[in-house]
Deep mutational scan, measured.
Amino acid sequence: DELEKRVKKIARKLNLSLDQVEEWLKRNNNDELVEAVKRLKKK
């Protein structure tokens, strides 16, 4: 979905793993995208 695409884009842009992106999003209080990261990690 759109949020998952955004997460992947962030990960690529910042050259981070999904775990690192998740931490980064949590620090930025971006719950919506944190949920998207969790969905991606399950895939």
Score class of each variant (00 low, 15 high):
39 R>T: 04
38 K>I: 11
31 D>S: 11
17 S>F: 08
5 K>C: 15
43 K>N: 06
12 R>Y: 09
3 L>T: 04
16 L>M: 15
35 E>V: 05
6 R>C: 15
36 A>V: 09
23 E>L: 07
9 K>P: 01
32 E>M: 09
22 E>T: 04
6 R>I: 15
34 V>M: 12
12 R>E: 09
17 S>I: 06
8 K>E: 13
23 E>P: 00
29 N>Y: 10
41 K>W: 06
43 K>C: 11
21 V>Q: 00
20 Q>K: 06
19 D>P: 04
14 L>W: 11
12 R>S: 09
33 L>M: 08
19 D>E: 08
13 K>R: 14
20 Q>S: 04
18 L>K: 02
32 E>P: 06
19 D>N: 08
9 K>E: 15
37 V>A: 09
2 E>R: 10
15 N>V: 03
8 K>C: 15
37 V>M: 04
10 I>P: 01
16 L>Y: 08
20 Q>G: 07
10 I>H: 01
7 V>C: 06
25 L>H: 00
39 R>D: 02
22 E>M: 13
17 S>W: 09
39 R>W: 03
17 S>D: 10
34 V>Q: 07
11 A>M: 15
20 Q>H: 03
16 L>E: 01
43 K>Q: 07
27 R>L: 13
24 W>R: 02
35 E>I: 06
13 K>F: 14
40 L>Y: 04
22 E>A: 07
28 N>R: 13
21 V>D: 00
37 V>Y: 03
40 L>K: 01
1 D>K: 11
20 Q>M: 07
16 L>F: 11
21 V>K: 00
25 L>F: 14
16 L>K: 04
35 E>F: 03
41 K>S: 03
20 Q>F: 04
42 K>P: 02
18 L>T: 02
29 N>V: 07
14 L>K: 03
25 L>R: 00
3 L>I: 06
34 V>D: 04
10 I>F: 04
7 V>Q: 01
32 E>R: 09
31 D>P: 14
3 L>C: 14
35 E>A: 12
36 A>N: 01
40 L>A: 02
20 Q>I: 04
42 K>L: 09
22 E>K: 05
4 E>A: 07
26 K>V: 10
17 S>Q: 04
5 K>A: 14
28 N>Y: 13
29 N>E: 09
38 K>C: 13
31 D>H: 14
36 A>Q: 02
35 E>H: 05
4 E>S: 05
3 L>D: 11
14 L>E: 01
34 V>W: 11
18 L>V: 03
3 L>E: 08
4 E>T: 06
36 A>D: 01
18 L>S: 02
19 D>R: 06
25 L>K: 01
39 R>S: 07
43 K>Y: 10
31 D>R: 10
30 N>V: 12
11 A>D: 00
21 V>F: 08
14 L>N: 03
39 R>E: 05
9 K>R: 14
23 E>K: 09
23 E>C: 15
16 L>N: 01
26 K>C: 13
6 R>N: 05
22 E>N: 04
35 E>C: 13
7 V>G: 01
19 D>Q: 07
9 K>M: 15
1 D>G: 08
8 K>Q: 14
2 E>I: 12
10 I>Q: 01
18 L>E: 03
42 K>M: 10
1 D>M: 10
17 S>Y: 07
42 K>T: 09
15 N>H: 13
8 K>N: 08
6 R>P: 00
24 W>S: 00
32 E>H: 09
7 V>I: 11
26 K>I: 12
43 K>A: 08
15 N>K: 12
31 D>A: 13
38 K>D: 03
15 N>D: 05
14 L>M: 10
11 A>C: 15
35 E>P: 03
24 W>V: 04
2 E>Y: 12
24 W>P: 00
43 K>R: 12
2 E>M: 11
12 R>D: 08
8 K>V: 14
26 K>F: 08
26 K>H: 08
15 N>R: 13
30 N>Y: 15
21 V>S: 00
5 K>P: 02
28 N>W: 14
28 N>E: 08
27 R>A: 13
4 E>C: 13
18 L>C: 11
43 K>M: 08
30 N>A: 14
21 V>N: 00
16 L>A: 04
39 R>G: 04
9 K>Q: 14
41 K>F: 07
6 R>W: 15
40 L>D: 01
20 Q>E: 14
5 K>V: 12
16 L>H: 02
39 R>I: 04
8 K>T: 11
34 V>K: 05
17 S>E: 04
8 K>R: 14
26 K>R: 13
32 E>D: 12
4 E>G: 04
16 L>G: 01
18 L>P: 04
40 L>N: 01
1 D>N: 10
35 E>G: 05
